[in-house]
Design a protein around this nucleic acid. Structure first.
Lengths: 163, 163
DNA sequence: CCCGCAACTGTTATAATGTTGCAAAACTTG
DNA sequence: CAAGTTTTGCAACATTATAACAGTTGCGGG
């Protein structure tokens, strides 16, 4: 791979969002799940940057929309989106980010830049495999893997030579 | 390895705790860090089971002791203990657990049993290495890895055949 | 068509987790 | 012991998440 990953360079992000929304609609249809206006709007908000968004940030945006929303509205939408693999929760940040591999079976791994806040989701079969093996060595039956890596993204390394 | 790991079988846990406290005292001395009574007591409480303890659980225990403590007392003690590698925070649980590799340089990986709540910390060089490689492929500079695996421990698999 | 069920939403209140800021006390060092 | 640093006590507050219950909507079967 020579080009840097998406979050780290300029791109037409509106197109990303639209693609994600279109994908989401299709996935929900296939799964007989209802992507209601609120849910779709929350997904759109989450997708609007490559930085994860807190539940209360989403709430604030909804309020700006004129939507008279309370926390449960947001959490319920987020639960739904998570369940259908459309967003991920980043446990170390208490925040949510759009899934860039929606539809595909995957084990996410997140590269979280401490300087710019961008998060890159990547799948790494080799990692998943070694995790599976290590857990297996303890006869542990894996059901969910939380793998979040904090550090500096390529762009920010240039500016933060001292860290 | 044939015997199962410590948390999964009966053992004299008081001895574990005492060992951990002794180690902690030595580590702090070496680092010129002050393991004050409150800090030591918090460490002891955290160590008293193989299940992670929430900050407010610790607070409640301190209160039972007769210690007139407020949240900052606990969080400050926990910060100190984390900084000196004596406890770990489990992000996916908002809870803390005693470090079983204090003193050694290590990247922790946690096996969290959803049935019994026990957590086993393990070091897995192969995992760390594959994570490092995957991140490196994106030119990402790793500083902290959060790796938490939820599932079923060996003992609990026997009872939860249906999951 | 409309009844009834299930899924979704609104609303209020509250729980759980974590932080800020400041003043007092304890320890450390010269 | 005096000055400075670290630690603690304390009150208030900020953030994140859930509970409980009532109302509403969409949808399939009589």
């Amino acid at each position: 791979m020579s080009a840097s990953a998406l979050p780290y360079r300029p791109h037409n992000h509106e197109a990303c969002v639209n693609q994600a929304l279109a994908d989401a609609r299709e996935i929900c249809q296939r799964q007989n799940a209802r992507l209601t206006p609120t849910r779709e709007r929350v997904l759109e908000l989450i997708w609007q940057s490559h930085k994860p968004l807190g539940a209360y940030d989403v709430l604030a945006q909804l309020t700006e929309d004129g939507h008279n929303a309370a926390p449960p509205t947001v959490y319920r939408a987020l639960d739904f989106l998570q369940q259908h693999g459309l967003v991920h929760r980043i446990a170390s940040l208490n925040a949510f980010i759009g899934c860039t591999h929606a539809g595909e079976h995957h084990t996410g791994m997140f590269l979280i830049c401490r300087a710019c806040g961008n998060v890159l989701e990547m799948t790494a079969p080799a990692v998943s495999e070694s995790v599976r093996q290590a857990a297996g060595a303890e006869n542990f039956k894996v059901s969910d893997v939380t793998l979040e890596i904090a550090g500096l993204c390529p762009s920010c390394q240039l500016e933060h030579v001292d860290e």
